[in-house]
Design a protein around this nucleic acid. Structure first.
Lengths: 169, 169
DNA sequence: TTTACTGCAAATATTTTGCAATATC
DNA sequence: GATATTGCAAAATATTTGCAGTAAA
């Protein structure tokens, strides 16, 4: 098997997960594919590898252009298809922040984090909070098995707030 | 001024907000429009009134068909336009659960609530939890003014879980 | 050899936009 | 009367789907 491993300097959007993390997620995908009688195509592992080189959120377009930039051609249809699989095996999570595209994020060992979203400019800032985490996990929801959560806190960032104050003068 | 007030039996999707709530939100919208030199069109108040007769989530299509059913014609473009305004004056909030349409919900006096989303069938169940509420409000986020929050808890509902167990036999 | 997967293009669906007609102020 | 808003249709955009060719098993 020959995983696509681009050998180049990483741009600002990229930040390698540790090799061991990448190997682990490949393993998880591999087992998932075997279990479901699906094929181990190079595209699948190239997409997974690329996703695990991205720090933060991304959309399908981002993955697509990053792979093209590596001279690794995959169609968008294939990316959509495979992100679906990665969602199923919990290697990726989906975010819907309210922009026009669906955002995704690697989820293995990424840790739970919360998002602050400015309702004016749309900037997203992440934070962690153990009290919130504890409160969510202490909540027993009838008839449901909890797997994960996402918290979106809405408000106004300082930049936009200052802009607003100027405008109302 | 002549607010559209449909005088008919309510269907299952509908549940009147109290008259006083409806009057209050009309007041809020009215003041917002005045402040921004925008016009008080009957469409705006008809849409607001309809939204405040809906319990739970809705999308643009829903509002559209409900108004058509009342023989009140508004174009979808107008609904999109006005939901934008209602978002601005905080009378409506937006949800992106992951389906194909954007979902909205009335927000005045609706209370904060959290959502459980089944990752298999997509069913959304609401719940409230004061511990979570407290934890979020205790969180001080640097450089941000918090206005509201939404929590999405993901997992599997009992129905889907049972289905899964059957399949793996 | 079988058939799952990829890539392309066409289809679908939601939301946005342009513009003429209309109605608010 | 001036112009913001509506309604319609067309446009834009993201995602899905159908299908022929390719490649994994």
């Amino acid at each position: 098997m020959n995983w696509a491993r681009p050998d180049k300097l990483l741009n600002s959007k990229e930040m390698e997960s540790s090799e061991s993390t990448k190997n682990t997620v490949k393993q998880i995908l591999s087992e998932y594919l075997t279990k479901h009688s699906m094929r181990k195509t190079p595209e699948r592992f190239a997409i997974l590898d690329k996703i695990y080189s991205i720090k933060g959120h991304f959309d399908v377009e981002t993955i697509y252009s990053m792979l093209i930039e590596d001279n690794y051609h995959v169609s968008k249809a294939t990316i959509y298809n495979n992100i679906g699989i990665l969602l199923d095996c919990k290697l990726v999570i989906r975010h819907q922040f309210g922009g026009s595209t669906t955002q995704y994020e690697k989820s293995y060992k990424a840790g739970v984090h919360n998002h602050f979203i400015c309702t004016k400019c749309g900037i997203v800032k992440e934070f962690t909070d153990t009290n919130i985490k504890r409160a969510v996990h202490n909540k027993h929801i009838k008839d449901f098995t909890v797997e994960s959560y996402t918290l979106y806190v809405y408000g106004i960032c300082d930049k936009c707030k200052q802009k607003e104050e100027k405008e109302s003068k």
